[in-house]
Design a protein around this nucleic acid. Structure first.
Lengths: 113, 113
DNA sequence: AAGCGTTATGCATGGGAAAATATAACGCAA
DNA sequence: TTGCGTTATATTTTCCCATGCATAACGCTT
């Protein structure tokens, strides 16, 4: 009955190839939506473009409909936009994540150590 | 509404110094109880003795009462036994872990992707 | 045609965690 | 007193993953 201990955890959505959506991936999607490109999104969260690109590729491959649409060339070199499926993926994950956080807090109170 | 996606996660109990109990640590405690020594327990789960020892040390330091009692020397070189606090720690974690698994399964059904 | 900032991709590099290795101390038994 | 299998701990090595770097293609602008 001490409050020195608390439950912690990680949550992700697993798809056909392994991890589909996790905390970092969803933040990345939000940053892409905000900045309009994978590279700017990666820079904004101090992630290498290489890694960010791989994550996006992994999500797109595992999603029925791509979550990110990309284009190369043009006035600003190209960019990336979230699709409707991308927006929904973000909502879907955060919804489960909220419930998870609630579970952790509630269940922490019942810890008998 | 596809069943191609499932929630996965990890759960652990955080104490004063960081991780106190997690899946691997609890299995280690069970193996120590079963085999009577840290080294035999580590071998049984293909973990280095070094690592196993560190985990036990971390748990003992963070627990009000030690979870493992150790002795050196003697007929069989020494050994390790679980204390009552150790048994209780195991039960405490598995109990939360069961609830967590239930949460993952239940919440997976509500995933709308 | 040249320049730009993207996407796209291979390959080398680095850093952190786990394992491997090496030693010492312990205490009972033969 | 020697040997054994443990606990205990420092040091070295290994391994994996993210990063860094290099390069090419793209397409709009000037």
């Amino acid at each position: 009955m001490s409050n020195n201990y608390r439950l912690h955890g990680r949550l992700w959505i697993e798809g056909p190839e392994g991890t589909f959506l996790g905390y970092g991936r969803v933040v990345l999607l939000e940053r892409i939506r905000e900045h309009g490109s994978i590279s700017a999104a990666a820079r904004s969260m101090e992630m290498s473009y290489r890694h960010a690109w791989k994550l996006v590729d992994s999500m797109n491959r595992q999603s029925l409909h791509p979550v990110v649409e990309k284009s190369t060339g043009g006035r600003f070199g190209g960019g990336a936009r979230l699709t409707k499926a991308g927006d929904e993926a973000i909502d879907c994950f955060w919804s489960a994540y909220r419930d998870f956080k609630r579970f952790l807090i509630d269940r922490s109170r019942q810890l008998d150590l």
